[in-house]
Design a protein around this nucleic acid. Structure first.
Lengths: 231, 231
DNA sequence: GTCTATAATCCGATAGAC
DNA sequence: GTCTATCGGATTATAGAC
């Protein structure tokens, strides 16, 4: 049998997240792939290189998801898309998401620090920027953008972490509704009433999907365009 | 030199959290303690037993911190104390806090599952109960206690995680203020105005401590007793 | 590009002297 | 209660045949 770089990384991330770092050995990895250990050295020069590349790809993918939010044409759209894409990344690449936050335990600080520290800062700044322009557009209550961004980030990250650890007894669809509902509770405090109301409507619509989803609810539009109205 | 159980556990937790599970070896642990590896087997029958006991103690300590909130005499006090004690545990035992959430990667599901799963459920139920009685007392807006408790838990956990990972450029004192400020932003949405106002005052008082703390600000009283007034 | 065989290292744990 | 010495096994990584 033959393997390629992608299959190795995929199997390695699964091994790493589901059974822990000690379980990611060249032998175990090769066994899963149907080859022997030395074959892996044709694709990676060492075990550590596999882990480093894995974490690097997790960061890259994360940045790609997040920056896609810049396709939104209004501050409200970009703000909303940022939250959606953050959640989408966590749910579509759960092992990467865990890897991102466990990376400091997996590899030495010097291995990825330049890129990772920079990426972590960039992510923080990205969210702050989306919050700031949402404030300027009158969508969020006035305040310190950095502080509000931290609050939003912490809430999303905490909720996702708890879910991925299996501490919420619900499936992915249930968690998506739960995430919207919880985010709305948070927005009630930091968003202007008009936008909070729109988020409430979105959460209600999502709840409606639960009991007999209307078949045209596929491409439900973004919550509002309230970001352009005032100013 | 001689070692005791406590020194071993303390050094082991440090090794585990700061350098990862692979770094916790009997040899490395013994070296840090100034003894040789076989000496450790006088106190623990195996390496795994060290990890299991460590996680167990992290859970026990956590429960002790949390249940102390029951000393509050009013729903408002118990609600407030729950949040304070949760934060106190995380800041006074940061390695235990990380251990708690990494435990599923450290030991087999069967080793601690009875106690851990039960403790995790108990903690969740404890917070839900405090939220429910705070709602009944008119301190929080009416709603689903489980949903609101999840939101509060997620926010606190997320913020603490981000801080412990060193992603917030601030010291512990700065983080305490930051935590209060962020919690207030959240409370603005889920608490009744009277209590939200009290939390705002508390956050402002904490901010005042920043620039020239008044020397009598030591035992600042609990935010309010608003929980007993309405009904 | 994968195999077998193997070198070198590190691990957990035990035996027995002191 | 700690030490030295050691067993048995696992690991990463390499050498060389095919």
């Amino acid at each position: 049998m033959s393997v390629d770089r992608e299959r190795i990384l995929a199997e390695a991330s699964d091994l790493l997240v589901t059974e822990g770092p000690h379980a990611l050995t060249m032998r175990a990895l090769a066994r899963r792939l149907g080859v022997t250990a030395p074959a892996l050295y044709r694709h990676f020069e060492s075990r550590e290189r596999i882990v480093v590349d894995l974490v690097g790809e997790a960061f890259d993918t994360f940045a790609r998801y997040l920056y896609r939010a810049l396709e939104g044409r209004t501050p409200a759209e970009r703000f909303s898309l940022t939250g959606r894409n953050y959640l989408a990344y966590a749910l579509e690449h759960p092992r990467y998401y865990e890897l991102l936050h466990a990376s400091h335990n997996l590899i030495g600080v010097e291995q990825l620090h330049p890129e990772a520290q920079q990426c972590a800062c960039a992510v923080g700044q990205f969210i702050v920027d989306r919050v700031r322009e949402a404030m300027d557009a009158g969508m969020l209550k006035p305040g310190d953008p950095e502080s509000v961004a931290r609050t939003i980030w912490a809430h999303s990250h905490g909720l996702i972490t708890i879910y991925l650890r299996g501490l919420l007894r619900t499936d992915e669809a249930g968690f998506r509704r739960l995430f919207l509902e919880s985010t709305w509770q948070l927005m009630e405090g930091i968003a202007e009433p008009a936008f909070a109301e729109a988020m409430r409507a979105e959460a209600a619509a999502a709840a409606a999907d639960e009991a007999g989803a209307p078949p045209d609810g596929v491409g439900r539009p973004l919550p509002v365009e309230v970001g352009e109205a005032p100013r």
